[in-house]
Design a protein around this nucleic acid. Structure first.
Length: 988
DNA sequence: GAGCACTGC
């Protein structure tokens, strides 16, 4: 076997920069090439096709390889399997470090198989037959003129030499081999000529199908194609091995390119006896393939080109119905263009009423109302576009349910609540905020007249605090229940409880298809009412083989769609800002060189932290002849819809936050998505017309590796806030609270313990006065405690400012990739005096306030205006709540220690001590000498453990403020003290 | 030499 370290160095230098593939894959591939080569020159040629330059270095490398790698002509199946196996493992191992560590294993396996692999006579004979058949086929085809053979370029001597070489190989005669190798030099020179000839052609830019590619790009495509073919071969092999079984559909008739499959056979058993035709033919064919490949080459690997090669799996589903109403945009245009002229206004209203009757839900109106009348609790299943959110409350109103109380409908998101309310008010011809209103944080758009009320689920939860039996409601509809937000899950328990003693309250749970049975079971076998949806069919494509690198696969797929598919925008789901920026760059780079040869590709990144003005770009209509690519995080999965999306590219990953109650650490890691998520993503392409979804994983992965549903939020979050809310609702027995999916009891206990430590609960687990005050604030308990404690330290103004800044999270500072230095410098200005991150946030807010909330100032300091405005809103709200819990607004900017003490009162849990070895890391502290004790806001595991928002602390404060929690020995014992409570802050 | 999906009150 070849010396691998040598290989790795060489391959990495030459290849990785060029092609961007994993080193291990490349090494494996080079080994394979070498094994399949009939001569060093043959290997050189293959390497060049592979993407290497035809330098002397390559040649000497090829010589080396050829000498080192045994040329037993092992069956390609085994070798392919080793590579394919590698690729296959690749996806399962995860995002980082896909290949390292498996190479060795795979290689051992391979070499073992090699040893065992006896080419039996039987096999050889069969191979030869196959080869002969294939040759016949090809010759027939050539004769038919579909392809032109080039004139053989080899001289007579060359042929003779090749024959001898082949003979030597067949006999495995090492002596002969050595003789042959002496002639390598000669051969090299001849090959050199051939290569120069090729280079002349290669140096030109290729133009095919109107697309211009540079040489490097062309090579890349070719390489990827080969890798891809390798992987597809592997699939067949795997079935043979019977280990990683792939679904049968992969081997369906016609799905396998037989010619490609046996191409290796031609190379392998070069028959010297067949004379002139055979030998050059093989060489010729490869060369010709190379050339003709350029004529047909498209972006991406060949297997992925034609939709026919994809698996057509889904969901034939829903018939095409002409798209109309649901989107309020058209309607608003209509309204605004038609001025107060009475008759037209009426017409518009009539039109709306007519449109209402075209909704899929309309035929079920009476049946639905009857069912609601008969049952107290119902689960309503309706796909997007059925009109359930807008229509059901109206039906209920028409049926008279609003006479005895409100009809409330909850949404997981603010915008949804607002826009649906607006739409319904128009349909009913009333002013928004009168009969139809909405209620979200910072904005209560309702009045005494209101009978239909849309709200966020969190808002209804808050209403429980003041009205525990929801007496003013006659119907509650929990919409989008399948999303299982934290608030929805808590509402389930509360609302279920209420229906037991309020028999007049109707409860509707509306969800997309997937979980209906589960909801029904939870609500004591409530009946399920199904409403057909309205959505265009979406074709779902899986890759044939797992993709080793989903970033790269996504790029290739996008370009491939762009070149081969009819107009329509593309939506790519990625995991985070960094990934989006990377792909943005690569795509721009790749398309730049193509100029006018392809249609313009407009790249639009979108993620929550992107400044608003840049976000707006995705909603601009795509100009004619151009195509838009939206690179989005999960935000596009539910939170926003983009018109015109026809293609969805889904690599199958997203970042998920989860909480470890034992360590109190949150982690934000890249995870595979769930099947439900995948369906949701696919559905994003079928909103305005038939769509296509390209999943960058296999059907096998989908079936076996993805969970059915995403773990509900309640099972992976810090429950302190939930517990506080429930406690303040008088629910004491939390362990027996009727959760649909109970959170881990460990998490519940941790939350109870935390609240007890914060003095929000007493030793019996009952709410204290402090706890009751804390529950008033819509914040994490630790932040609430900070505010409540600020009363004592006379700095409530500062406390609410910091609390609002912290509760916004990490979107305050804008840090674009290309201006990181500037952004960081700007940020440092707020840290002058080593004040710590918390005070720095305070500085940011106060400076902004001094500039009279200037937008310009935000730009200059790389601060997000949107976040700051939000902070202002939250602060205003908190200010109002201060009054409610009777805390004097007090401010003392000169005594920052007081502020820090208030923070410590809330966050003493989150203290960390510097170890000798530097056991913690601060996030953004500019000081040269690290503080010995710090308070942190949160602990997050991403690629490493991070403390976010850190401020220095005097250890005595811990004893002063939380004597029940800390003792002298925790603080004093300098050298050996672990972190209090033994929290595991990992060392660097 | 570094990093942070998405909501919501």
């Amino acid at each position: 076997m070849a010396d691998e370290s040598y290989l790795k160095t060489w391959v990495s230098d030459k290849l990785i920069s060029l092609i961007g593939y994993s080193k291990s894959v490349a090494v494996q591939y080079v080994i394979r090439l070498s094994k399949e080569s009939s001569s060093p020159a043959d290997l050189v040629r293959k390497l060049v096709e592979f993407g290497f330059s035809s330098s002397t270095e390559t040649r000497s490398f090829a010589d080396d390889m050829y000498a080192k790698v045994p040329h037993k002509q092992a069956g390609p199946s085994v070798l392919a399997s080793s590579n394919g196996f590698l690729l296959y493992i690749g996806l399962n191992v995860g995002v980082q470090d896909r290949h390292e560590g498996h190479v060795q294993h795979v290689q051992n396996q391979t070499s073992k198989i090699d040893e065992d692999d006896d080419d039996s006579e039987e096999e050889r004979r069969r191979d030869q037959e196959e080869r002969a058949q294939l040759e016949r086929n090809i010759r027939e085809r050539d004769a038919a003129g579909t392809r032109k053979l080039m004139e053989p370029k080899l001289t007579k001597e060359e042929k003779e030499e090749q024959i001898r070489r082949s003979k030597a190989l067949e006999d495995n005669d090492t002596l002969e081999l050595r003789k042959v190798s002496r002639q390598v030099y000669l051969q090299k020179r001849r090959d050199q000529k051939l290569l120069e000839l090729k280079d002349e052609i290669v140096d030109h830019e290729y133009i095919f199908e109107g697309v211009k590619l540079t040489e490097a790009e062309e090579r890349q495509h070719r390489f990827k194609k080969q890798i891809y073919e390798l992987a597809s071969e592997h699939i067949e092999d795997v079935d043979d091995i019977n280990e990683y079984r792939m679904p049968e559909a992969y081997d369906q008739e016609g799905g396998v390119n037989q010619e490609k499959r046996f191409a290796a056979a031609i190379h392998r058993y070069r028959d010297p006896g067949a004379g002139d035709k055979m030998d050059p033919f093989a060489e010729q064919e490869a060369w010709e393939n190379y050339q003709s490949g350029k004529g047909t080459l498209k972006y991406g690997s060949r297997n992925k080109q034609a939709p026919a090669d994809y698996e057509f799996v889904l969901e034939d589903g829903i018939d095409f119905i002409k798209e109309s109403i649901m989107d309020g945009v058209n309607f608003e245009d209509e309204m605004s263009s038609e001025k107060p002229d009475d008759s037209t206004a009426k017409n518009a209203l009539q039109k709306l009423q007519e449109e209402r009757q075209t909704l899929p839900i309309y035929p079920y109106r009476d049946e639905l109302l009857q069912a609601i009348h008969d049952h107290q609790v119902m689960v309503i299943v309706g796909e997007t576009g059925s009109g359930k959110t807008t229509q059901i409350p109206q039906y209920l109103h028409e049926a008279g349910y609003t006479k005895h109380g409100l009809v409330g409908c909850t949404q997981p998101r603010r915008v949804a609540a607002m826009s649906v309310a607006a739409r319904v008010s128009q349909e009913m011809g009333v002013k928004l905020g009168h009969e139809v209103g909405y209620s979200i944080r910072f904005e209560d758009c309702t009045s005494e007249k209101t009978i239909l009320k849309y709200m966020t689920d969190g808002m209804l939860l808050r209403e429980f605090l003041s009205e525990p039996d929801l007496a003013s409601y006659s119907v509650i509809m929990v919409d989008e229940a399948h999303e299982r937000t934290l608030s929805t899950d808590i509402l389930f328990g509360l609302v279920k409880d209420i229906t037991r003693f309020r028999k007049d309250l109707k409860l509707l749970i509306s969800s997309a298809t997937l979980d209906a049975e589960k909801f029904s079971d939870y609500f004591d076998s409530a009946p399920i009412f199904k409403i057909p949806g309205r959505r265009f069919p979406v074709t779902i494509n899986f890759t044939k083989a797992p993709e080793a690198d989903y970033i790269d696969a996504a790029i290739v797929t996008v370009l491939q769609i762009h070149v081969t598919q009819p107009p329509g925008d593309i939506l790519v789901f990625l995991t985070g800002q960094e990934e989006i920026e990377t792909i943005d760059e690569i795509l721009k780079h790749r398309t730049r060189g193509l100029g006018t040869k392809i249609a313009e590709l407009i790249i639009c990144p979108i993620y929550a932290n992107l400044p608003t003005e840049l976000q707006a770009k995705i909603f601009e209509p795509t100009p004619d002849g151009a195509r838009k690519v939206v690179l989005a995080t999960n935000i596009a999965e539910t939170s926003l819809t983009i018109d015109g999306i026809k293609y969805v590219v889904d690599p199958g990953f997203c970042k998920i936050k989860s909480y470890n109650p034992r360590t109190g650490m949150e982690s934000l890691l890249i995870n595979p998505i769930s099947k439900a998520s995948a369906m949701q993503r696919a559905g994003r392409s079928g909103r305005t017309g038939p769509g296509m979804c390209f999943r960058l994983y296999t059907a096998y992965n989908f079936q076996h590796d993805l969970d059915d549903n995403t773990v509900p939020e309640i099972q992976r979050t810090n429950l302190a806030n939930v517990v506080l809310t429930l406690k303040s609702l008088g629910i004491n027995d939390l362990v027996n609270f009727d959760f649909m999916d109970p959170p881990p009891s460990e998490a519940l206990l941790k939350a109870l313990e935390q609240l007890y430590a914060l003095n929000a609960l007493n030793s019996l687990g009952e709410l204290t006065k402090t706890g009751r005050r804390m529950a008033e604030f819509p914040l994490d308990p630790m932040l609430s405690k900070t505010i409540v404690a600020s009363e004592k330290y006379k700095c409530s103004e500062e406390a609410i400012t910091i609390a609002s800044m912290l509760s916004i999270g990490n979107s305050i500072f804008y840090r674009p990739k290309d201006k990181q230095v500037h952004a960081d410098n700007a940020r440092m200005n707020f840290h002058t005096g080593n004040v710590g991150d918390h005070i720095a946030l305070l500085n940011v807010y106060n400076s902004w306030k001094e500039t009279n909330y200037s937008t310009q100032w935000c730009y200059e300091n790389y601060i997000q205006v949107r976040s700051m405005k939000r902070a202002r809103d939250i602060r205003d709200q908190l200010e109002g709540l201060l009054e409610r819990v009777e805390i004097e607004p007090t401010s003392n900017l000169s005594d920052l220690d007081a502020v820090k003490k208030a923070i410590t009162s809330g966050f003493f849990h989150h203290s960390a001590k510097l170890q000798k070895t530097g056991a913690y890391k601060t996030v953004k502290n500019p000081q040269t000498v690290l503080p010995r004790w710090v308070i942190y806001h949160e602990l997050v595991l991403t690629t490493k453990e991070y403390m976010r928002q850190v401020t220095e602390l005097k250890p005595d404060w811990l004893i002063e403020i939380a004597p029940h929690y800390y003792q002298m020995k925790d603080v004093e014992d300098a050298s050996t003290t672990k972190m209090p409570r033994g929290k595991g802050l990992a060392a660097d």
